[in-house]
């Protein structure tokens, strides 16, 4: 018997998986270079969400000692969020580079359709 409770209880992961697949799908199927890249961004985003949601603890608070909480206070794990900040920076720089390349491609070829580009190459 399928454990629906387990499945539903991890809805955030399902969302991540769905987003990841959407991104991958877009990257593979879409002809337009920008759409391909948007797919990559969606994929990246899904991973960011994955990290954040795995770091989250139900009922946890942000891990700042200023709250003055005692030992019973549950903190959210800060490390995944920190990591993901770095990953976001990386993604942004990748995106920036990709977009600048796309601009150049459009200038040179006058199209962003990958099939046409293969012909023009």
């Amino acid at each position: 018997m399928v454990n629906f409770g387990f499945l539903l209880g991890h809805y955030n992961y399902w969302a991540v998986v769905v987003l990841f697949l959407i991104g991958l799908y877009a990257m593979i199927v879409k002809k337009n270079l920008i759409k391909k890249f948007m797919g990559l961004n969606i994929m990246d985003t899904s991973i960011f969400l994955f990290y954040i949601s795995m770091g989250d603890v139900e009922g946890g608070v942000s891990p700042i000692i200023a709250h003055g909480g005692g030992s019973d206070v549950i903190y959210v794990n800060p490390l995944p969020s920190v990591l993901i900040l770095t990953a976001i920076v990386v993604a942004i720089s990748t995106t920036a580079l990709a977009l600048s390349l796309i601009i150049k491609i459009y200038e040179e070829y006058g199209t962003l359709d990958s099939d046409r580009l293969v012909e023009l190459m």
């Binding site: 990841f20 991958l24 990257m27 270079l33 391909k36 890249f37 990559l40 994929m43 990246d44 991973i47 994955f50 990290y51 795995m54 995944p80 990953a87 990386v90 990748t94 580079l97 990709a98 390349l101 796309i102 150049k104 491609i105 040179e108 070829y109 580009l117 190459m121």
Partner: peptide, 24 residues
Amino acid sequence: AILASYKYLLLGAIGTSFTLVGIA
């Protein structure tokens, strides 16, 4: 070269994403 770079970038980015998931 630009096109080659873009192709490299896309695949490289996918590679990056995969390793990131693995790390997670």
